[in-house]
């Protein structure tokens, strides 16, 4: 196991599109273990995507179970994940381990339906909401080279203008 280096913006690899995983083998298991160790080592870390450590593969780990009073699915390994349905939207303030010392407001869907393969390659389906749904949307963006700073909304968009 090893803690991997987290890339920070403007590293160009954070803007690249990750490739699907086709082989669920021992190498993948080792990488997932390292990615998870990297996530656990980050203070308050609740999610990580493989491109954040320079591996352009469609792998995300999420675990929001440390947050009190929210619905969640615990530790999830999401491989080749896809969001199939979005519902509602909410504004939230986000930061990112790959974009240090900056936070900003981002609109995300409140509820999502997600499908993803697990570590063994079996496709799973999840219904998520709130904080967990936001975390998943943030991490899945990394697989398409999108950072939260690509999705910032203006402060003034909160106002109800004529």
């Amino acid at each position: 196991m090893a803690i991997l280096e987290i890339l920070t913006y403007p590293d160009p690899r954070l803007k690249m599109i990750a490739e699907p995983i086709t082989e669920f083998n021992a190498d993948l298991a080792v990488f997932i273990a390292n990615l998870e160790e990297t996530l656990r080592a980050a203070p308050g870390g609740v999610g990580i995507a493989a491109p954040q450590v320079g591996i352009l593969q469609r792998i995300v780990i999420i675990d929001v179970s440390s947050k009190p009073k929210i619905k969640h699915h615990g530790r999830l390994i999401l491989i080749n994940p896809e969001i199939n349905h979005w519902k509602g939207f909410a504004i939230g303030r986000e930061g990112c381990m790959s974009v240090p010392d900056y936070t900003g407001k981002v609109v995300r869907a409140e509820q999502i339906e997600l499908s993803a393969q697990d570590e063994s390659g079996t496709r799973q389906h999840y219904q998520m909401e709130g904080y967990e749904a936001r975390a998943v949307q943030h991490e899945l963006d990394h697989l398409d080279g999108i950072l939260f700073i690509d999705r910032l909304i203006s402060r003034r968009h909160d106002l109800f203008h004529r």
Binding site: G45, V46, C96, Y131
Partner: peptide
Amino acid sequence: RLTPITTTIF
């Protein structure tokens, strides 16, 4: 109307 702002570092 008062709304807490929680900032999450993902």
